[in-house]
């Protein structure tokens, strides 16, 4: 019944879990990564008739496999080849977060950037030009969000469905 599988990647403390919970609601399954002691969260949601399975990757700062979390995230993206990777970034610490995003880009996986915590960034006087960012990245969708407040969720779902339909 699953039409596509997508992955949620991001640094620790980017509100990735909030995004995951907001997308899946109660349709979650928590287990461990095979042979690892790291928690694996999977969930489902349906949008516009598409059944989407979503895998929450462990929080990591890079894909360089320095830590177990980084290794799991990298192996999933490279070996399991999800239809789409949603890179959740903290808008208030964008520069640090984009390092991981850049490495995901390099794997060649299709990607959407979820620019989370824009409310925090705004309050610190940080303004992000999402269309400009998208253009610099060759048209990768950049969705502004504040998942804590439920802002930008529909836009994200819309972008996920649009991106997976294109494939």
């Amino acid at each position: 019944m699953t039409d596509v599988t997508i992955a949620l990647a991001g640094n620790p403390n980017t509100g990735k879990s909030t995004v995951f919970n907001a997308l899946t609601g109660s349709r979650q399954h928590v287990g461990n990564w095979p042979g690892k002691t790291v928690e694996k969260k999977e969930g489902f949601f349906e949008y516009k008739g598409l059944n989407i399975q979503i895998v929450d990757l462990p929080g990591a700062y890079s894909l360089s496999a320095y830590s177990l979390e980084e290794q799991i995230a990298r192996d999933f993206i490279v070996k399991e080849k999800p239809a789409l990777v949603v890179s959740v970034t903290d808008a208030a610490n964008l520069e640090r977060n984009l390092y991981l995003t850049t490495q995901i880009l390099e794997t060649g996986a299709p990607m959407i950037i979820a620019l989370n915590m824009t409310d925090v960034a705004n309050s610190r006087g940080v303004k992000i030009d999402a269309p400009q960012m998208s253009r610099s990245l060759g048209g990768i969708p950049v969705i502004k969000m504040a998942a804590r407040r439920g802002q930008g969720l529909d836009e994200l779902k819309e972008a996920i469905v649009a991106a997976t339909r294109e494939l």
Binding site: Y61, Y66, E95, R96
Partner: peptide, 16 residues
């Protein structure tokens, strides 16, 4: 002209 958190990431690279 980098965010402090990004600078921290680069410092951690050199620490490694």
């Amino acid at each position: 002209k980098v965010e402090q958190s990004a600078l921290d990431g680069m410092i951690q690279f050199w620490v490694r």
